[in-house]
Design a protein around this nucleic acid. Sequence first.
DNA 1: TGTACATCAGTGAACGCGCGTTCACTGATGTAC
DNA 2: TGTACATCAGTGAACGCGCGTTCACTGATGTAC
Lengths: 221, 221
Amino acid sequence: MRYSREHKLETHARIVKRASVRLREKGAHGIGVADLMKDAGLTHGGFYAHFDSREALVIEAFVHAMDRSTERWRKLAEQTPPDQRMAAIVDSYLTPAHRDDPGHGCAIPALGAEIARESPKTRKAFAAKLDQMIDMLAAQIPDVSRKAARKQAAAVIATMMGTLVMARVAGNGEFSEEILNAGREAALGRAASSKRVAKNTASKKGRRPALTSRRLLALRY
Amino acid sequence: MRYSREHKLETHARIVKRASVRLREKGAHGIGVADLMKDAGLTHGGFYAHFDSREALVIEAFVHAMDRSTERWRKLAEQTPPDQRMAAIVDSYLTPAHRDDPGHGCAIPALGAEIARESPKTRKAFAAKLDQMIDMLAAQIPDVSRKAARKQAAAVIATMMGTLVMARVAGNGEFSEEILNAGREAALGRAASSKRVAKNTASKKGRRPALTSRRLLALRY
DNA sequence: TGTACATCAGTGAACGCGCGTTCACTGATGTAC
DNA sequence: TGTACATCAGTGAACGCGCGTTCACTGATGTAC
């Protein structure tokens, strides 16, 4: 079948992209090589022409997902006034749509706990991407030192991803909404300007509707 | 071998207890029936005299872990002045010791994401225990409505468990400590009295050392 | 430009292994008499 | 109280299945001449 060089790169990218969705949906061990290849329109035998092992694909797929999330946040921040950037990110993250579609969502709530148990190589690849994500988010916080900004960013991510894990455990009923609301309020309170009034104004002065628009969600993580 | 009735109950309890440790360490799918039985000093063939299926053990083990955590918090709260209870719980939760010993730690960061993907039966069992845990923590928050207390409690748990997942991904070096500190500060800020001054007083007036004592950690979750 | 050969992405059967589950069996102890 | 039998928690071999990985093969296309 001898394909051109670009063809192989495209195929490789397609496998990674599809796998990053399926692995977030099913877990790092929840889907096999054969099904992952089938999902990319191939048969399982060709897998090792692209990856040294299943684990190598898991790493690539995970890196892909994290890069997409970080890039998404960067773009969302770009088109939002500086003092509302963190709130915009939180609003777009803590939604029923994100809770119900882990395959296209943030990789941390979907795979974080499992990755922490993987080989050092896999865990470190994840940690490096998490570090980048924190840096990107920290860069959106005005008027504080890098150190303080990173601290805030790490806390916001922890609150958001923890909330999403709990909301998914809770299903999609009232209990889940309660958790989502609690997490949103907590993250926004911390994400708001230093005077800590934004939490109240945000929910009542109509700033949020624009930020939670379906368009933003359609972009996905 | 015909044993007495209590003997079977004891054996059953021992399997559940040991499994609850090993499953938190290795993940909901990270260890097999044979190894779980071996861990309890038995051979795998006897498993089905105690459980209908592997999944049934996972549910029992998980319920056991959550009950222990909730009970631990209740006891810790009992021996702490009301206005410091939440801080005491946060301080005992966000530690390197807890990060490094998932087997004896909170089941939510260890198993939450995986359980959210299990059968409705398993997920609902987890959700019910999470609900109980939120209620227990909410009961420690003075001077607010039950609804508001539950909201705060849910947010504190989300921040704590999210922080622990991220800290585990980050390993056990500087990066991990940074995350732990960020999460602790964020959770304590929210957990403190309504005037939001406790965060500063806590870290400087020597209240914390007593609360983070090794003794509390030795009790485990 | 045309032809013969080499390449290698992709195929599908097969491998060895570990898993959850089943099953015939054991034998110490509970129970009926 | 003593004896014969029934019970059933626990054993260890075996099952069927799915998994990650290997391998001989294919055939369309790149490349050398």
